[in-house]
Design a protein around this nucleic acid. Structure first.
Lengths: 245, 245
DNA sequence: CGGGATGTTGAATATGATCAATGAGCGTGG
DNA sequence: CCACGCTCATTGATCATATTCAACATCCCG
């Protein structure tokens, strides 16, 4: 079954930015739509935005692969504090856990197409295994970066990092030190998360996120009318605000 | 090659606690020492404590498997802020990255025995692939938990969570709500990290970590003379301090 | 046009960071 | 063996940053 999936994964991987490629495609249009593998034993989900796929604690024996859209993974503490753990995009996988219970809640951010493979099927397919291994490596790297953000960065650095990751092909290798002066370096990003969701992702409150946006706007690093369409005047200037460069 | 590795990995997995099993064995003696797979194309490292294995940015094409001891993965920001990302133990893997460069620094915490497989070798061995996939799943779960800790928990909750994870078979499923009263529920843990390292792991300063320890001691939750030998009077009481229960 | 959800801004507060002094443990060498 | 110096930990006082509480503004949808 399915050399489809493997080749798919490889071609995707090659197109993605070299680092931070674990789902950082939120709101970025991806014109090359992924071909859909036609496999039996695979359920297909076609979901609207903000739809729960899996709850923390649910039985989770199957492999979910995102074909289109984006999914967020989150966890709750008993008193209601929430942390959004990962933001995933096309090619990313979720739903597998070492025990049979999901450790996170998964819900769509955008309308999404997802393939669900039975655990046994996933484990018997070398090409799927390969896809899963590659994606998990990428997700681990993303989680490493995120741990650094949550543990050591201040509010503005967190928001700047978040925005940088919405800019395709930047923030990883692309931005090597201060860019050659005089180069116009604009970018337009679409922020699909609410301030509350961004806050839950960055380990802040929504007010603090809002203040960080306002500060960056006041400093001329960002411009926006509607809260969700942000223009980054100078990408490298924003990059300087992330604390990573 | 090596049904050794696969069977090894499976037997280990079965012995480990069901959740949080990605390396939470720091300082816990593990009497059943792992058999060492006798494979060509595998380099063996025998390292003292606090030895750097791999630097952030180093070429990292090979798979490292920990046989004995423990390893910490960390990242630095340009201004010197450090975050310890993961603490790994026997059975855990590291050194593989989606690009060819390591995204983290790896160094031993305890004297450690490590096998290093060439990337090509690792990728051609189904049993190693299997080990890697299983371990990565466990590490991803641990990273999810840690993101929750870093993003949403306060200082005492972080320290309590850290200590709970040093108690074998607890903190995961084991501790279901308030334990039956009157049950003696002591545990002795050995803290191998310095306060500074704990701080870098928990996203705090060493002073804050010290204060949290002192507070828990003053409340009678902990007792210790030397800083590194901690007695937990009532494990469930400590568990209550983690914010997770 | 109105109402609910979402976002912004301000003032007071709390939590952890920073700066600083002191103390305990340990290995080395007189 | 003890004194010295080093590292590591504790504790206190002050400060900074993010949180909390609250009022108000804006956007979107019916």
């Amino acid at each position: 079954m399915s050399l489809d999936v493997a080749s798919l994964a490889h071609s995707m991987r090659d197109r993605l930015p070299p680092k931070h490629d674990a789902g950082w495609t939120l709101g970025i249009s991806r014109p090359e739509a992924m071909a859909e593998p036609a496999e039996k034993a695979a359920r297909h989900l076609d979901l609207p935005a903000r739809q729960t796929i899996l709850d923390e604690g649910d039985e989770a024996r199957s492999l979910h692969v995102i074909l289109e859209g984006s999914v967020m993974l989150s966890k709750l503490l008993p008193d209601g504090r929430r942390q959004i753990i990962e933001l995933l995009g096309p090619g990313d996988v979720f739903g597998l856990c070492i025990n049979r219970l999901s450790d996170v809640t998964a819900e769509t951010v955008l309308p999404s197409r997802i393939v669900v493979y039975d655990r046994a099927v996933a484990e018997s397919s070398p090409s799927l295994q390969r896809l899963v291994a590659d994606r998990m490596k990428a997700q681990i790297c993303a989680l490493h970066d995120h741990a650094m953000l949550l543990g050591r960065k201040n509010a503005v650095e967190r928001v700047a990092t978040f925005l940088m990751r919405l800019v395709p092909n930047r923030g990883g290798q692309g931005c090597a030190g201060p860019l050659a002066a005089g180069k116009a370096d604009q970018a337009q990003v679409h922020v699909t998360l609410t301030r509350q969701e961004i806050a839950d992702y960055l380990g802040l409150t929504l007010e603090t996120v809002s203040r960080a946006f306002s500060l960056l706007k006041r400093q001329g690093v960002l411009a926006y009318g509607r809260h969700d369409d942000v223009t980054i005047g100078n990408v490298c200037r924003l990059c300087q605000c992330t604390g990573s460069h």
